[in-house]
Write a protein that binds this DNA or RNA. Structure first.
Lengths: 256, 256
DNA sequence: TTATTAAGTGTGTATTTGACACTTATTGTT
DNA sequence: AACAATAAGTGTCAAATACACACTTAATAA
C-alpha cells in the first residue's frame, strides 16, 4: 500500500489582463508552442500569464511582476479577485506537456491566486516573445480553449469586472489619459453588454465629478470633433462610494 | 553562503465567522492556551479558526470543514473573499509557540485563503473545546489582538461584509428562520454603523420581495408584538441584482 | 389604572431616472 | 463649392424613487 507523501502545493498568481481597443474588450494571453513527439508539429496552447510566487514575494508583488515582465508596465490597476485551488485543476492530460516543460514536479498541486488587471493597451509594448512563447491580444468573444482551468478563471474575472465597473470608477483604467465621452460610453456598453443613452450617460458622468473636460478636442476626424476628458483619479479614490447611484450630496444610496 | 531551499508554502483556509446576537455583531474566535516556559503560566492567544488545506480538498471544502468542525453546521453561507500571502505574515515572535505546536515545519511560509461565514448564532452548538483550545464569540468592537495577520484579515472581512450587504440580500443569513422587522433593521444598522428610518426601511424590504410576512407574531413581549417574517432564499437567489437600489421592475439601477 | 415599550402606519416634497430628436462641426466626395 | 456622411453635443418633461417626519396601537409591568 503506497501513501502519497503530503507535498505542499505550489502557489502561483495568474493575471487576467483586460485591454480595450477598436471598440472591443481584449484579453492578453500567452501562446505557447508545445513540441508534440508524435506529430512532430507543434501544439499551440493558450494560457493566462502567470508564475509561481517567489519565496520573498507577497502576492501583489508576484502578480505585478508577471504583468511587468509581459508588458513592461508598472503601477497598473491590478486587483486580486479569487483563488482557485481545486486538486484536479491541472489534471487535464492536454496540459501535461506544458507542465513538464516548466515544473520540476509537474504532478504537484498548484493553487493559484487570480488577479484582474486593467490596462490602456496603447501603453503596452509587448516584450519580445521567445521561440516558444508569445503574448497576444484576443477579443473576449474569441477566447480559445485555455490551459488548466483558465477558461473558468477568465469567466470569473469578466463577471467580476462587470460587477465592479458598476460600483467603482475603474473603467477609466482601460482608456488612455485623454479620452472622449464617446470612447467612455463605448467602453461601458462593451463591458455591460447593453446600450446606454447618450445624454443620460453624459449627465451622470459629468455630475459624478470623476472626469474633467479639457479644452483640447479631437483633430482630423471626419465629424464634429469630440472634446477630451481626463479621469480625476485622486477625486475618485477619495469618493470611493458608487459614482453611479449618486445623490446630490455625493453619497451612496442605500436606506433612508 | 547558505541558500534557503525553496520549500513550497503551506496553504490554509481561515474563516471569519460572523454571528449576530443581542444587537451585536460577533466574531467566532479560537482561544488557545500556550504554555509559557518562563512564567509557567499560559499565554492566551486568539486566532481565526482555520486549518491547512488537505491534499484531496478544494478550497471551499476545506473552509466548510473548518466551519463544520467548530460549529457542527453544514450548508452555511460561506464565501471566499481574499487570499493573504505576505512572506512575513506569520513572522511575529509571539506566534512562534503556537506554530511550533501545530506545524511540523513552523518556519514554512503559509498562504491563507480567507473565507467569510454568516451564521445564525442560535443554531450553533460550539463543539466542546479541548484543554488547550476553545471557541468563543467576541463582539466585533472587542476583538483582541489576534495571531499572525488575523486582525487584518478580520478587518478586510468586515469591510467586505459591509459592502456585500448593500449589494446582496445576505444579511438574512445572520438571523433565525423567523425574524421581526425590528431585528432585521437592527442588524443592518449594526453592520452599516448608521441609523435607518423605520418606515423607509420597512417599505424597501417589503417591496423587494425577499421577505414574506407570517401570520405568527411575538408572544410574551411587553409591547405590541411584532410580526415575524421569513427570508425567501429562492426568490432572492433568482433575483441576484441589488435588492436595495430597486426599480419598479425589479432591476438594478445603473444607466438608462 | 397608568406607565412603559416597541410595533406599525401614510404623505408630501425633492431628487433622480429615463425617454426622446434635432443641430453642429468636421472631412470626404462630387 | 455644394453636398453627403458621420459622430458630437445639447434640454425637457413625466414617472419613479428617496427622504423626512409623528402619531396610534398592543402588549406587559407597576
Amino acid at each position: 500500500m503506497s501513501v502519497t507523501p503530503s507535498l505542499n502545493p505550489h502557489v502561483s498568481t495568474d493575471c487576467v489582463i483586460f485591454g480595450f481597443s477598436q471598440e472591443t474588450l481584449r484579453l492578453l494571453l500567452i501562446r505557447r508552442n508545445i513540441p508534440n513527439r508524435l506529430t512532430e508539429l507543434n501544439d499551440i496552447l493558450y494560457a493566462l500569464p502567470g508564475d509561481l510566487v517567489k519565496d520573498d514575494e507577497n502576492l501583489d508583488k508576484s502578480a505585478n511582476r508577471v504583468l511587468a515582465e509581459l508588458t513592461g508596465l508598472k503601477g497598473i490597476y491590478l486587483t486580486q479577485f479569487q483563488t482557485f485551488g481545486d486538486p484536479l485543476r491541472i489534471a487535464k492530460t492536454k496540459d501535461r506537456a506544458w507542465l513538464e516543460s516548466v515544473r520540476q514536479n509537474p504532478d504537484a498541486r498548484v493553487i493559484t491566486v487570480a488577479y484582474m488587471a486593467l490596462i490602456d493597451s496603447q501603453k503596452v509594448n509587448l516584450q519580445p516573445g521567445s521561440f516558444s512563447e508569445e503574448a497576444v491580444w484576443v477579443p473576449i468573444h474569441e477566447v480559445p480553449e485555455l490551459a488548466f482551468d483558465h477558461n473558468e478563471i477568465y469567466e470569473q474575472a469578466l463577471a467580476a469586472l462587470k460587477e465592479r465597473v458598476q460600483m467603482q470608477p475603474i473603467g477609466f483604467e482601460l482608456l488612455p489619459e485623454k479620452f472622449t465621452m464617446g470612447e467612455l460610453q463605448s467602453l461601458y456598453e462593451t463591458i455591460l453588454e447593453r446600450d446606454l443613452d447618450k445624454r443620460n450617460f453624459r449627465r451622470k458622468m459629468i455630475n459624478s465629478g470623476v472626469i474633467s473636460p479639457l479644452t483640447e478636442k479631437q483633430i482630423g476626424v471626419s465629424n464634429k470633433p469630440a472634446r477630451y476628458y481626463v479621469y480625476n483619479r485622486e477625486f475618485a479614490q477619495s469618493n470611493p462610494s458608487s459614482i453611479f447611484n449618486l445623490r446630490m450630496d455625493g453619497s451612496f444610496t442605500l436606506f433612508n
